[in-house]
Amino acid sequence: MRAWLREQVLAFLDALSRIRRQFLTAILNVLVIGVALSLPVGLYVVLNNVSGLIQRGTTEPQLTLFLDTAATQADTDAIRQRLKESPDVQGFEFVPKDKALAQLQSSSGLADVREELGENPLPDAFIVSGRATRATALEKLRDETAKWPHVELAQLDSVWARQLEAGIRVGKAFVAMLAIVLGVALVAVTFNTIRLQILGRREEIEVSKLIGATNSFIRRPFLYFGALQGVLGALFSWGLVSLALALLERQLGVAISALSDSGQLRGLSGAEVLSVGAVAAGLGWMGAWISVSSHLRRLDPD
């Protein structure tokens, strides 16, 4: 166990010294990996913020209940009471038909409509905002309220919310695809770097094998090198995304503070940074493993 641990530490130190010896190459690789990673990571952050804004946004989807013309003041009060008691309802506003007509007249310029119609054709209405913002949850609320007495029509303006949700879903799928493609690129970059390193150390590897080094002993420093490079790339992409976010915040300053409570865009959480780092380390490790193993296979006796 102690010997195993010592081997790990020695291999790690060896990997560090390899980075130091090939500093420029290593830095350039870290840049490449970092830029490649910051595409999916950045898109992920943007999507996160968009869906965050929708969830707490001021333009949340609304449910409108139109009452029938037979509804009396008592009926209206009963509905008002039921809305108050419903756990799914966050708030509501009563729009009496006179006010609705006035709004219509002022906003559409149809000032003469009243005279021509003779009487107000508009119904009383409740504009309800639900506690849940997911479209399906609001649909449930609509189906329920539609059955209430004197509710002529319950209309949900959920189309846009659905479209946005669908858009975000597509966006997330796109990010996942991008992450996979660029993950493969990360493996390829590491593979190539390690291959070049192996060429520079061909003799050392050959002699080590001749005097009894196991494949895992030879592989180990390369694996640590690949993983380290991945982690550094992930850190760099984190910095890049944070910087972009800060610039965006300055540009959109007013708009953001109108839309979000904190007035700030949401960056990566600690757990998210850790998982990006872990994934990058894993991919770097994998690229190195493939590279060294394919070289070592050629050294085995046939």
């Binding site: 003799e203 050392e204 050959e206 002699v207 094998k209 001749l210 005097i211 009894g212 080094a213 196991t214 494949n215 002993f217 085995d300 006796p301």
Partner: peptide
């Protein structure tokens, strides 16, 4: 097996005609 070869070689001392020393 290929994986057992290193342990065989650890019981041997190999001297090569071309030395195979590492000059780095």
């Amino acid at each position: 097996r290929a994986a057992a070869i290193p342990y065989l070689r650890r019981n041997l001392g190999l001297v090569f005609q071309d030395h195979k020393l590492l000059f780095d």
